[in-house]
Every structure is written in C-alpha cells, then in structure tokens.
Design a protein around this nucleic acid. Structure first.
Lengths: 205, 205
DNA sequence: GGCCTTCTTATACTTATGTATAGGTCGCTA
DNA sequence: TAGCGACCTATACATAAGTATAAGAAGGCC
C-alpha cells in the first residue's frame, strides 16, 4: 500500500486531502505542516513513496525545497502542489525534476488519478497548464499605453525600423519616433529592444 | 466496459495495441486502418467511449481529422497518437480540444494509464512535452556563430547597448559593433532587435 | 614557416534612434 | 467655450547603431 506524505501549512486543506486519500483509496497518509517537518518525517523509519509539497509553505522557499527534498530522498516521488502558481512555476518545477504538479483547483477524483499516475512511475502535468497562458491582458505598465503607442509597440515586436513602422501606420517617421519615445518612458526601458523583449515576455503580440 | 476504437494504418502497431488493451485490461477494442474507416465504424450501432487517432494516417489530414471526429461524435473522447509529432503539434491538438495526446514512445503500461485517465474524464498530456522543448541547441543559423558572437548575442537579448556589452565583455565598443554586425549577417536579420527576438524564439538564453 | 580563423582595435563614415521644443488638428467634456 | 488628451508634424540636435576597410596578435593546422 503506497505511503504518502502531505506537507501543507493549511490545516484544513491538508487534513481533508489526507482523509480523502485514506478513506477513498486506502493510502497510508502522513502529514506535515511545514517543509522542515516534512523532511524530518521522511527521515523516519518508514519509507515514503510519494511526498506532496505545498509551494507556499514555511521553509519551502519556492522551488528550492523541491530540490532539497529530491536530494534528501532520491527514491521518493515528489509532487508539487499549489493553489496560486502559474504556468511558469509549474513548468519550472517539472523542469527541475518534480514528478508532478497538482493545482489545488483540481477535483478530488482527478487528484487521486494524478497521484496514482505518479505512483505508477508517470509524471503528471495538468493538460490545461500545457496550453497557452491566458491572453495576458494589458497588465500593469501596458495599461496606460495609448492606442497608437500600443500599435507602435506591436510593430516594434517585429523588429521593424521607425521608417517601416511609419509606412505601416501611415504616418511620418518623426511621429513614430514620438510614439516610441513615449512607449519607452511608460514601460521604463531604455531602448526599443528592451521594449520588444518586455512585451514578448508578457505574451503581448 | 469501455469501448475503444483505434485507428492507425500501421497494422502491427494497431493490432498489438488492441490486443494488449483487450487482454491486459479487458477493454472492448475495435480497429480501423484509416480515418474514413474510423468514422464509418463510429457510425455503427455501438457507441465508442474513446477513439485513438493516429496523426499520420490516410484521410487524417493533420489536425483536421481531429476536428471532424469531434464534431461527428461529440460524446466520444478523442485522443491523438503520434510517433513523430513534436511539442507544437501536441499543443495544437490539445488546444483544439483533444482529450489527450499519446506519443508512441510511451510504454504500454503508461499508455494504459493515459487511456484510463482520459476515460475518467481527465485530459492526458505527457509531462515531458509540457516542458521546454529540447535545450534548443545551436540549431541551424546559430551553429556558425563564434564564441564571442554568441556571447554578444546573449547580451543583446538583455537589450543592452553596445557600450554596455563592451564593458561586460571587457573589449572596446567598436569590437562589439563588429560582433553585432556579424551576428546580424549570420542570422540574416537587419537589426539587433530582430536578432534578440529570434534568439528568444529559439529559446536560447 | 605559411595558412587559416577568431578576436581585437583603429579610423571614418552613413544611417537609425532617441530627445527636445514648438506648434497644429480633432474630439470630448466640464 | 475653454481646457484636456491623443494624435500628428516640423526642425534640430545628440547619441547609438551599423557598415567599410585595414591591420595586428594568438592559436590551430598542414
């Protein structure tokens, strides 16, 4: 019977999940409320087949805890769990060798499926995380770009010159220069390359 | 007992998978050797719970077949299977509403896991496809960049100026200009912004 | 030794980018 | 109607970016 260790500082979340896994699927479940508690528990006599680590948990320190857990107990499967983490975190976790990533919005049944999956030697990654991130709305800085400035930024992201942008927008080059200057100021960057990179990072265009 | 339809033009592959699913897991399996055969089979009396479509199969026509299958039988789960498809195809398939993507390199046991997963209402996406594509080795154009040129490109990807790059590399600005010029020529782009964007697209740096 | 490539620097130049200031139109709105 | 913001244009300038040519130093290679 697989032995599972759940580490999460949210008592309610942790205990309900533990109870569910014990009663519904008969897993042997232990719990910990922070990262160090989890490590201490794993040092015990019983081997843990799978440890579920909450991403936001005292002592976890982001993905650092993932690494430490893996190194301390190479034979145990390690799954990261988070209620807030975005695609980037999930991807980074998988890239660092996590055996799975479980968003807390997952249905209980699905979570059990994921756990079984990992116990079977697979790696679990939620399908919807694999797809494109949200359309990345005009977040933060990008909000206060005017229409024209946004269009200019878009052309910038194709690596076009001021002259080309001017032709595309049907204005004079000097006008484009003005827009570019305003974009740089509003995005708080110092040249067009940084602006384009920043926009790309935020998945605009 | 779940009814499964496997459509693949490789007889050996198709039949061995079918036999495995039937004997090991007791699924009810039917087969087809091309896309139209699969559709015809699905029009029969028996409802199919899950259809597995080979990506490279007569009549499949890429992801088009996926769409047609889903529209023709909205209640059936549809999983795409491929031996050659890359991350992009897999992502596109999932984005188009496939219930799963099965690379043929998957172990038999893992495939069964995936199938069970999908039948349980989940969507299956192989974890290693979700991660960053191959380390993006110096593919194509990037291969013939010299060491220094590559370093210059890296700095370029931070949006730095020639002067800053020069300071970081400990050379004169004019030298950086030369490297930049060579990079632009070798990458066949016309300015530093395009070079940075191109490098980022290829997931260098 | 010659030959090659890479890296380096220099001088000199053209073009692109970014800044500054000043003014104009338009549409909205207090 | 006066003011405001977004937009456009003009002139002018400073600096950055990119091109061209020449040439020296260091290392690998035949």
């Amino acid at each position: 019977m697989p032995r599972i260790l759940i580490a999460d500082d949210h008592d309610l979340v942790r205990d309900t999940i533990a109870a569910y896994l014990e009663t519904v699927d008969g897993f042997t479940v232990r719990t910990a409320s922070d990262f160090d508690g989890a490590l201490a528990d794993m040092r015990g006599l019983d081997v843990v087949d799978l440890v579920i680590l909450d991403y936001n948990m005292p002592g976890m320190n982001g993905l650092d805890g993932l690494d430490r857990a893996r190194k301390a107990h190479p034979t145990s499967k390690v799954v990261l769990m988070s209620g807030v983490a975005n695609k980037d975190v999930a991807n980074a976790a998988m890239a660092q060798g996590a055996d799975g990533f479980i968003p807390k919005r997952l249905a209980a049944k699905s979570m059990v499926n994921a756990i079984k999956f990992v116990l079977a030697g697979e790696r679990y990654f939620p399908a919807d995380f694999a797809e494109a991130e949200q359309p990345a709305m005009p977040s933060g800085k990008f909000r206060d770009l005017s229409d024209r400035e946004l269009q200019t930024l878009e052309q910038l992201c194709s690596g076009l010159s001021n002259k080309e942008i001017a032709r595309h927008l049907g204005v004079q080059e000097v006008t484009v220069k003005l827009h570019v200057k305003n974009v740089l100021a509003k995005l708080n960057v110092s040249n067009r390359t940084q602006a384009a990179l920043l926009a790309k990072e935020h998945h605009l265009f």
